[in-house]
Structures are given as C-alpha cells and as structure tokens.
Computed example of a mutant assay.
Amino acid sequence: MRNISDIIESYLKEVIQSSNSDVVEIKRSEIADRFECVPSQINYVINTRFTVEKGYFVESKRGGGGYIRIMRIRPKSKKELVDEILMLSGKQLTQQSSIDYIERLWEEGIITGREAKLMSKIMHRDILSLPLPMRDELRAKIFREFLMTIKIYD
C-alpha cells in the first residue's frame, strides 16, 4: 500500500503532466484538504520529491493569496542534461542526491533501468563504507566518471 506522500506526489505529477505547460500553481491548503492531511505534509512532499536533482524548481509565496509554483525543468537535449548534472553534482555528493540524479537520468531515457539499479547500488553508503566527508567525495568522483562515460558513448 502506498503512503500519503506517494499519493500526493503522484497527484502533483499528474497535474503537471495534464497542464499545457511545465508550470503549475497550487494552493497548499487546497491540496491538504483534498488529501485530508496537514499542510506541512504538502511541504514535506514538495521539499523532498520536487527538487532540482529530480528536475523541478519550486517557489512559493506565503500569505492569504499565497501559492506554490512547481516548474518542471526540461533539458533541450540529453547532452545538456548530463552537462547540467555534472555542474550541479559538485565535489561532494550525498547518497540521496545521487539517487535523485540517477532516477532523473532514467526518467529522461538517458540510461536504462538496469544501469540505474547498478549505479544506485554503487552509490549506497554500505558499499562506500568510508567516513564523511570522504564518502561523499568518493561518491561524487564515481558519479562524475559515470556521467563522463555517458557523454563519451552516447
């Protein structure tokens, strides 16, 4: 059974897909009422499931007429997306960020499901059993090599 966060995420993604643009504006309280949850649950979903790593930009305006605007970031090409991720990933990379980037590469059709699973396993903290920050530095190096290989052989 899916949890409420998964259900809210799916709903918001459907709203974005069904719109004629990659931008939607929502009212947190309306979504919370729809799913009979507290508004902070909507914040949690947006803050964890609609990140830059996953290809979204979020801005919000607080107050009575406030809204949350979710924008889907679509790359012009596969090369542009790989270059963007290379730039964003930096010298240290958390496990969650690496998984989010890998998921995005898979969703955009740049890597296969098998490649995504393999890379996700390699990025896991149990495999990279080093203390922080060395673990995040090593993860970033491995991930950058993965991206460079995609660029070369694509």
Rank of each mutant, 00 (worst) to 15 (best):
M134G: 03
S129H: 10
K121S: 14
D22R: 09
F143K: 09
F50A: 01
E115W: 04
A116N: 04
P133N: 10
E137P: 00
Q96C: 01
I16T: 03
L132M: 11
K151Q: 15
S40T: 14
I73W: 05
A32V: 07
S10G: 09
S129V: 04
M87D: 12
Y101K: 10
N47V: 01
E30I: 05
S60E: 13
R34L: 15
R114G: 04
D22N: 15
G109P: 08
S89L: 05
R49I: 03
S77P: 06
I110N: 07
K78I: 07
K121F: 14
V82C: 00
E84D: 13
R144G: 05
G66S: 09
L118G: 09
Q17F: 07
S18D: 12
Q95D: 03
Q92G: 10
F146Y: 14
S77K: 10
S120F: 07
S29K: 11
R139P: 10
E103D: 12
A32P: 00
S19D: 12
K13F: 02
R34P: 01
K27I: 15
R28I: 15
L12Q: 02
S120V: 06
R28F: 10
I152H: 08
S19T: 03
I4T: 08
R125L: 04
K91W: 07
D6Q: 15
I16H: 02
T48H: 09
N20L: 05
I46A: 06
T51Y: 08
K27N: 14
M148G: 01
I68M: 09
S129A: 10
K117A: 13
P133Q: 11
